[in-house]
Amino acid sequence: MQEHLPVQAPPRGRIPQIDHDSIRTLGLALFSPAPYLEVMRHLVAGLRGLGLLGKWHVPAKSSLFRARQRLGFEPLQVLFAATAKPMANESTPGAFWRGLRLLAVDGTCWDVADTEANQAAFGRPGNGRGTRRSAFVQVRMAALVEVGSHAVLDAELAGCRTGEVTLVGRLPRSCDAGQLVLADRGFLGVPLWRAFTATGADLLWRVTQLPCTTGVAPDMITSTASELR
């Protein structure tokens, strides 16, 4: 973290505050069902057994809330960009096919805190009842994932009304030759197909529509299919 962000040097023997806050935030993701204070107990459990905690004690819950707000998203974004790399090797089950590293793209949505700031940034999906808005604000994410390790190599987030195809269109930046990118139905289309193939990656995408409705020429599909035999 210190290599990528301008962090003021702490006193000798102490960890920078930004690293403390980052570790706590990562712990919230690892132990997501647990309350804040329980997450802290999980993180320091081994240190206490080694006698490394000294007089340290779990801080008040309000202090953890403030630390999370103080951290913001930028340090975690930098940390992800610096560490999101393929993890599988040739011995990892399901990671390679005929020498090609298997990747997959897909999208999902999840609920976030119902705040005015989140609603302004991400919006709410509609429904067919009442106010025609869902109960929760939602974020949409599209991700490029390594199949064998499930490691997320790249991701794009936006409001729930931004389409998956739009977000996936930003992911070719992390593709390269020697990879086979898998995708489910709904992503096939000339602009997206060309964006991925321009990286040198091979594609295997599910098709549920006729080529004439997607704009993809039949020979684009049959040439790929013949190589898979």
Rank of each mutant, 00 (worst) to 15 (best):
L100T: 05
G200Y: 10
L100C: 02
T25Q: 08
R132S: 09
K55S: 13
S226A: 15
T222G: 02
R185S: 11
T131E: 15
P211M: 04
P211L: 05
L171H: 01
L182A: 00
D202Q: 11
E164Y: 05
P211D: 05
H150P: 06
A201E: 00
S226P: 04
F31G: 01
A135V: 14
G163H: 12
L228E: 09
T199A: 09
F122I: 01
T115V: 00
R161V: 01
L153G: 04
I23R: 14
V147S: 04
P33K: 03
C212P: 06
E38W: 03
W205V: 11
G189R: 13
L204H: 05
F96A: 07
D111M: 05
A155C: 09
L26I: 04
V181T: 01
G148L: 00
G189L: 12
L26N: 00
C160Y: 08
D106I: 10
W193S: 03
R161E: 08
F73I: 07
V58Q: 07
T108I: 02
R194Q: 13
L53K: 00
R132A: 10
C212T: 15
Q119A: 11
F65V: 13
A34W: 11
V190I: 15
V39L: 00
E90N: 11
G72C: 09
S226G: 13
A67S: 10
C175E: 02
R170P: 14
P6K: 06
A155Y: 06
L188D: 08
G123Y: 00
V105F: 01
H57D: 10
F136P: 00
E164K: 02
K61E: 13
D202G: 03
G107T: 14
Q179T: 04
K85F: 08
H57C: 09
R129S: 14
P75A: 07
W110V: 06
R206E: 07
R124N: 03
R98C: 08
P11R: 11
E227V: 10
T83Y: 10
H4S: 12
D21G: 11
A151H: 11
A151M: 14
R194L: 09
Q209T: 14
A104H: 07
V137M: 07
V78N: 03
T166M: 08
V181P: 05
G46N: 10
